[in-house]
Simulated assay, not measured.
Amino acid sequence: MAKIFCIANQKGGVGKTTTAVNLAAGLAGHQQRVLLIDLDPQGNATMGSGVEKAELDMSVYQVLIGQATVAACVKRCESAGYDVLPANRDLAGAEIELVDLDERELRLKAALALVGAEYDFILIDCPPALSLLTLNGLCAANGVIVPMQCEYFALEGLSDLVNTIKQVHANLNPDLMIIGLLRVMFDPRMTLQQQVSEQLLEHFGDKVFKTIIPRNVRLAEAPSYGLPGVSFDKSSRGAKAYLDFGAEMIQRIQQM
Protein backbone atom coordinates (compact mmCIF):
# COMPACT_ATOMS: atom_id res chain seq x y z
CA MET A 1 0.00 0.00 0.00
CA ALA A 2 1.08 3.55 -0.72
CA LYS A 3 2.55 5.79 1.93
CA ILE A 4 0.46 8.97 2.02
CA PHE A 5 2.00 12.32 2.94
CA CYS A 6 0.61 15.83 3.22
CA ILE A 7 2.82 18.74 2.22
CA ALA A 8 1.46 21.29 4.67
CA ASN A 9 2.17 24.60 6.32
CA GLN A 10 -0.44 27.10 7.47
CA LYS A 11 1.84 29.93 6.39
CA GLY A 12 1.55 30.86 2.72
CA GLY A 13 4.44 31.37 0.32
CA VAL A 14 6.77 28.80 1.86
CA GLY A 15 7.20 26.59 -1.19
CA LYS A 16 4.56 23.95 -0.48
CA THR A 17 3.52 23.49 -4.09
CA THR A 18 7.09 23.69 -5.38
CA THR A 19 8.00 20.98 -2.88
CA ALA A 20 4.97 18.80 -3.71
CA VAL A 21 5.55 18.92 -7.48
CA ASN A 22 9.32 18.45 -7.33
CA LEU A 23 9.21 15.74 -4.66
CA ALA A 24 6.74 13.86 -6.88
CA ALA A 25 9.15 14.26 -9.80
CA GLY A 26 12.13 13.36 -7.61
CA LEU A 27 10.48 10.17 -6.36
CA ALA A 28 9.41 9.23 -9.88
CA GLY A 29 13.03 9.77 -10.91
CA HIS A 30 13.93 7.03 -8.42
CA GLN A 31 11.46 4.63 -10.09
CA GLN A 32 8.68 5.11 -7.53
CA ARG A 33 4.99 5.04 -8.51
CA VAL A 34 3.68 8.43 -7.43
CA LEU A 35 0.27 10.13 -7.27
CA LEU A 36 0.23 13.88 -6.56
CA ILE A 37 -3.08 15.26 -5.26
CA ASP A 38 -3.80 18.97 -5.67
CA LEU A 39 -6.07 20.02 -2.78
CA ASP A 40 -5.73 23.76 -3.41
CA PRO A 41 -8.48 25.51 -5.42
CA GLN A 42 -5.78 27.67 -7.04
CA GLY A 43 -4.63 24.55 -8.90
CA ASN A 44 -0.96 25.50 -8.93
CA ALA A 45 0.30 21.93 -8.51
CA THR A 46 -1.97 20.95 -11.41
CA MET A 47 -0.56 23.63 -13.72
CA GLY A 48 3.00 22.99 -12.51
CA SER A 49 2.58 19.37 -13.59
CA GLY A 50 1.60 20.38 -17.12
CA VAL A 51 -2.16 19.79 -16.72
CA GLU A 52 -4.42 22.60 -17.96
CA LYS A 53 -6.86 23.26 -15.12
CA ALA A 54 -9.29 25.24 -17.30
CA GLU A 55 -9.85 22.18 -19.52
CA LEU A 56 -10.67 19.66 -16.78
CA ASP A 57 -13.93 17.73 -17.03
CA MET A 58 -13.43 16.12 -13.64
CA SER A 59 -11.13 16.89 -10.72
CA VAL A 60 -10.56 16.19 -7.05
CA TYR A 61 -13.78 18.15 -6.44
CA GLN A 62 -15.89 15.37 -7.97
CA VAL A 63 -13.94 12.81 -5.93
CA LEU A 64 -14.63 14.61 -2.63
CA ILE A 65 -18.36 14.97 -3.19
CA GLY A 66 -18.69 11.38 -4.39
CA GLN A 67 -19.43 11.94 -8.08
CA ALA A 68 -16.27 10.23 -9.42
CA THR A 69 -13.47 7.88 -8.44
CA VAL A 70 -9.80 8.82 -8.21
CA ALA A 71 -9.00 6.54 -11.15
CA ALA A 72 -11.52 8.35 -13.36
CA CYS A 73 -9.99 11.77 -12.67
CA VAL A 74 -6.25 11.09 -12.71
CA LYS A 75 -4.05 12.80 -15.32
CA ARG A 76 -0.43 12.07 -16.21
CA CYS A 77 2.55 14.38 -15.84
CA GLU A 78 4.35 13.08 -18.90
CA SER A 79 7.51 15.12 -18.38
CA ALA A 80 8.24 13.61 -14.96
CA GLY A 81 6.40 10.28 -14.95
CA TYR A 82 3.89 10.67 -12.10
CA ASP A 83 0.09 10.82 -11.88
CA VAL A 84 -1.88 13.91 -10.84
CA LEU A 85 -5.32 14.20 -9.27
CA PRO A 86 -5.93 17.76 -10.46
CA ALA A 87 -7.83 20.72 -9.02
CA ASN A 88 -9.42 23.91 -10.29
CA ARG A 89 -11.66 26.63 -8.90
CA ASP A 90 -14.58 24.18 -8.55
CA LEU A 91 -12.79 22.95 -5.44
CA ALA A 92 -13.59 26.19 -3.60
CA GLY A 93 -17.24 25.11 -3.61
CA ALA A 94 -16.40 21.79 -1.98
CA GLU A 95 -15.87 23.55 1.36
CA ILE A 96 -19.57 24.45 1.49
CA GLU A 97 -20.89 21.18 0.08
CA LEU A 98 -18.77 18.99 2.37
CA VAL A 99 -20.35 20.50 5.48
CA ASP A 100 -23.60 18.62 4.89
CA LEU A 101 -22.03 15.27 3.97
CA ASP A 102 -21.48 12.32 6.31
CA GLU A 103 -17.91 11.84 7.57
CA ARG A 104 -16.96 14.99 5.69
CA GLU A 105 -13.33 14.97 6.91
CA LEU A 106 -12.81 11.36 5.74
CA ARG A 107 -13.97 11.67 2.13
CA LEU A 108 -10.47 11.73 0.63
CA LYS A 109 -9.26 8.85 2.80
CA ALA A 110 -12.14 6.66 1.61
CA ALA A 111 -11.46 7.53 -2.04
CA LEU A 112 -7.73 6.80 -1.77
CA ALA A 113 -8.37 3.38 -0.21
CA LEU A 114 -9.43 2.21 -3.68
CA VAL A 115 -6.11 3.11 -5.37
CA GLY A 116 -3.58 2.72 -2.55
CA ALA A 117 -2.18 -0.54 -3.96
CA GLU A 118 -1.33 1.13 -7.29
CA TYR A 119 1.22 3.59 -5.89
CA ASP A 120 4.31 3.67 -3.68
CA PHE A 121 3.77 7.30 -2.64
CA ILE A 122 0.73 9.56 -2.57
CA LEU A 123 1.55 13.24 -1.96
CA ILE A 124 -1.14 15.77 -1.04
CA ASP A 125 -0.55 19.48 -1.69
CA CYS A 126 -2.66 21.24 0.95
CA PRO A 127 -3.95 24.84 0.85
CA PRO A 128 -2.32 27.34 3.26
CA ALA A 129 -5.15 27.31 5.80
CA LEU A 130 -6.76 24.90 8.22
CA SER A 131 -9.89 24.22 6.17
CA LEU A 132 -12.03 21.16 5.51
CA LEU A 133 -9.82 20.48 2.51
CA THR A 134 -6.65 20.49 4.64
CA LEU A 135 -8.45 18.37 7.23
CA ASN A 136 -9.29 15.80 4.55
CA GLY A 137 -5.62 15.67 3.63
CA LEU A 138 -4.47 15.27 7.22
CA CYS A 139 -7.03 12.54 7.92
CA ALA A 140 -5.94 10.58 4.85
CA ALA A 141 -2.20 10.85 5.51
CA ASN A 142 0.34 8.74 7.35
CA GLY A 143 2.45 11.80 7.98
CA VAL A 144 3.19 15.45 7.25
CA ILE A 145 6.15 16.95 5.43
CA VAL A 146 6.60 20.59 6.46
CA PRO A 147 8.48 22.83 4.01
CA MET A 148 9.65 26.01 5.70
CA GLN A 149 11.90 28.96 5.17
CA CYS A 150 14.49 29.64 7.83
CA GLU A 151 12.96 32.92 9.00
CA TYR A 152 11.61 34.14 12.31
CA PHE A 153 7.93 34.22 11.30
CA ALA A 154 8.22 30.69 9.91
CA LEU A 155 8.98 29.45 13.43
CA GLU A 156 5.76 31.03 14.72
CA GLY A 157 3.75 29.38 11.93
CA LEU A 158 5.41 26.06 12.68
CA SER A 159 4.14 26.04 16.28
CA ASP A 160 0.57 26.56 15.00
CA LEU A 161 0.93 23.68 12.56
CA VAL A 162 2.36 21.35 15.21
CA ASN A 163 -0.65 22.08 17.44
CA THR A 164 -3.03 21.37 14.55
CA ILE A 165 -1.33 18.05 13.83
CA LYS A 166 -1.56 17.09 17.52
CA GLN A 167 -5.30 17.82 17.52
CA VAL A 168 -5.92 15.78 14.36
CA HIS A 169 -3.76 12.96 15.77
CA ALA A 170 -5.77 12.94 19.02
CA ASN A 171 -9.24 13.21 17.53
CA LEU A 172 -9.32 11.96 13.94
CA ASN A 173 -6.16 10.20 12.75
CA PRO A 174 -4.01 8.40 15.33
CA ASP A 175 -1.50 7.42 12.59
CA LEU A 176 -0.65 11.04 11.78
CA MET A 177 2.81 12.34 12.64
CA ILE A 178 5.37 14.83 11.41
CA ILE A 179 7.70 12.98 9.06
CA GLY A 180 10.12 15.84 8.79
CA LEU A 181 10.88 19.52 8.30
CA LEU A 182 12.34 20.54 4.94
CA ARG A 183 14.40 23.72 4.77
CA VAL A 184 13.54 25.47 1.49
CA MET A 185 14.58 28.66 -0.35
CA PHE A 186 17.75 28.52 1.72
CA ASP A 187 20.47 31.13 1.22
CA PRO A 188 23.58 30.26 3.25
CA ARG A 189 24.87 33.84 2.89
CA MET A 190 22.16 35.10 5.25
CA THR A 191 23.18 34.84 8.90
CA LEU A 192 19.55 34.76 10.13
CA GLN A 193 18.76 31.75 7.98
CA GLN A 194 21.78 29.91 9.35
CA GLN A 195 20.70 30.75 12.91
CA VAL A 196 17.11 29.57 12.37
CA SER A 197 18.40 26.40 10.70
CA GLU A 198 20.52 25.69 13.76
CA GLN A 199 17.52 26.31 16.03
CA LEU A 200 15.45 23.82 14.05
CA LEU A 201 18.15 21.17 14.36
CA GLU A 202 18.44 21.89 18.08
CA HIS A 203 14.70 21.60 18.76
CA PHE A 204 13.64 18.92 16.26
CA GLY A 205 16.82 16.86 15.81
CA ASP A 206 16.45 14.08 13.25
CA LYS A 207 12.98 15.32 12.30
CA VAL A 208 14.83 17.88 10.16
CA PHE A 209 15.66 16.44 6.75
CA LYS A 210 19.35 16.45 5.86
CA THR A 211 18.57 17.74 2.38
CA ILE A 212 18.39 21.53 2.05
CA ILE A 213 16.64 23.11 -0.94
CA PRO A 214 18.54 26.21 -2.09
CA ARG A 215 16.96 29.38 -3.39
CA ASN A 216 17.06 28.70 -7.12
CA VAL A 217 15.85 30.71 -10.12
CA ARG A 218 15.31 27.62 -12.29
CA LEU A 219 12.83 26.16 -9.78
CA ALA A 220 10.90 29.45 -9.87
CA GLU A 221 10.87 29.54 -13.69
CA ALA A 222 9.70 25.96 -14.21
CA PRO A 223 5.94 26.38 -13.45
CA SER A 224 5.51 28.96 -16.22
CA TYR A 225 6.50 26.17 -18.66
CA GLY A 226 4.13 23.65 -17.03
CA LEU A 227 7.06 21.58 -15.81
CA PRO A 228 8.46 20.48 -12.44
CA GLY A 229 11.87 22.02 -11.80
CA VAL A 230 13.36 18.53 -11.80
CA SER A 231 12.26 18.12 -15.45
CA PHE A 232 12.84 21.73 -16.53
CA ASP A 233 16.56 21.81 -15.77
CA LYS A 234 17.96 18.59 -14.31
CA SER A 235 21.40 20.16 -13.94
CA SER A 236 20.20 23.03 -11.69
CA ARG A 237 21.03 23.06 -7.99
CA GLY A 238 17.32 23.02 -7.13
CA ALA A 239 16.58 19.98 -9.28
CA LYS A 240 19.53 18.06 -7.84
CA ALA A 241 18.39 18.95 -4.30
CA TYR A 242 14.87 17.60 -4.91
CA LEU A 243 16.29 14.39 -6.41
CA ASP A 244 18.40 14.05 -3.26
CA PHE A 245 15.30 14.73 -1.17
CA GLY A 246 13.41 11.98 -3.02
CA ALA A 247 16.21 9.53 -2.18
CA GLU A 248 16.17 10.67 1.46
CA MET A 249 12.39 10.18 1.65
CA ILE A 250 12.66 6.63 0.30
CA GLN A 251 15.38 5.86 2.84
CA ARG A 252 13.40 7.39 5.71
CA ILE A 253 10.27 5.38 4.85
CA GLN A 254 12.27 2.16 4.74
CA GLN A 255 13.45 2.88 8.30
CA MET A 256 9.95 3.55 9.67
Rank of each mutant, 00 (worst) to 15 (best):
A87W: 02
V168L: 08
G48R: 00
G81D: 03
A117M: 07
P128T: 08
P223L: 08
G43C: 10
T134G: 06
R183I: 08
M1E: 11
T211A: 09
S59E: 13
D40N: 15
A241S: 11
L176R: 00
N163K: 15
V146R: 02
L39I: 05
V34E: 02
E97A: 02
A129I: 10
Y82K: 05
Q167E: 14
D38Q: 04
S159F: 12
L108A: 03
L135Y: 10
L138E: 06
Y119W: 13
L133A: 08
G205S: 15
N216H: 14
I124H: 08
D90T: 08
A92F: 02
Q193C: 04
D40R: 11
D83K: 12
L243V: 07
G12E: 12
E52D: 15
A241L: 10
D100I: 00
R189L: 05
Q42N: 10
L219N: 11
V208T: 13
K75A: 15
I179Q: 05
F204A: 03
A140N: 13
V60P: 01
A92R: 02
Q195V: 08
D40I: 10
L36D: 01
L172F: 15
H30D: 08
L201G: 14
G137M: 13
A94R: 00
L108T: 02
N216M: 09
I213K: 07
T19D: 11
L227Q: 14
I122W: 04
L36Y: 05
G116Q: 15
L112D: 02
V230Y: 04
E221I: 03
P147F: 02
K3F: 09
C150M: 04
H203N: 13
A71C: 05
K234A: 15
A8K: 01
K210R: 14
V70Y: 07
P147D: 01
P188M: 06
E78A: 13
G50S: 11
A117T: 12
K11F: 04
L155A: 08
A92Y: 03
M256N: 12
L106W: 11
